[in-house]
Design a protein around this nucleic acid. Structure first.
Lengths: 128, 128
DNA sequence: TTGTGTGTACTACGTATAATAATACAGTGT
DNA sequence: ACACTGTATTATTATACGTAGTACACACAA
């Protein structure tokens, strides 16, 4: 877990993405306990409120579960229902991404390769 | 030219992306004059300062050229030199994009299809 | 020359977001 | 009782965004 202080992304958002990535890669397993708000804040050298905000968002997204007085745990990952609104948002991001790529002389093949690399990371169904 | 007031993207950034997209699609040709700062502000119902900020960034990126007292024009589009820093930024955006896509059950094939659609827009070399 | 339009620069103001700081409260388990 | 947990609240600081108003130097046509 490392936070990029120079990133334009806010700290809490970086935490959200890190946790989600680790869940997707199987590094964090459902039922597993993660660091408490205060402990995580100590590790990342930041304010507990910021970590709390990240956990709050992760719980809203169903990635984690919080139990009062006990701690925070990775939730059972449910099959996501396709959300048309979010799909539209992704398509919009792709629009900006391709625009930027083309201005950098990155062709479709190269971009697709990088996409494939990212899909390679993380086991969809671990069987070992 | 339409600005999305409800978008999380700042106005000036939306203008930058719109102009760049239109240049890439050939809608705006090199040498062609675009609306002045004040005229564009009137059309988009926003402050001239915001448009000026967008034009400033577009000029830094070599997309447009400004001539004092005369106006603003589309620059000759130069063959971009590959910028390793910007390439790394794109790869990082892809990382976030794929993460989000996988949480929405969007598989690699579907994502690649959308990418291809975006590359389809805009003529690389118009020959008519 | 006068007038209009151009890019540019500057200050000021209001608003929203992000992050920190310091408390406080209720629940859990030893 | 004690220490830890998540959660909520208020306050403060810093930054970004957008608007508003003003000003200056340049280009060009009447």
């Amino acid at each position: 877990m490392m936070i990029d202080k120079s990133s334009a992304k806010p700290y809490y958002e970086q935490i959200v993405l890190l946790i989600k990535a680790q869940v997707l890669q199987g590094i964090l397993q459902p039922g597993e306990r993660i660091a408490s708000v205060r402990e995580m804040a100590r590790q990342l050298l930041m304010n507990p409120n910021t970590v709390s905000k990240a956990y709050k968002m992760l719980e809203m997204q169903g990635v984690i579960m919080t139990v009062k007085g006990r701690g925070t745990y990775i939730a059972e990952q449910q099959a996501t229902v396709r959300d048309d609104v979010k799909i539209a948002q992704i398509k919009h991001k792709i629009q900006d991404l391709v625009l930027e790529a083309r201005y950098l002389s990155v062709d479709k093949t190269e971009l697709t390769t990088w996409i494939t690399e990212q899909y390679g990371r993380g086991q969809v169904n671990a069987n070992d």
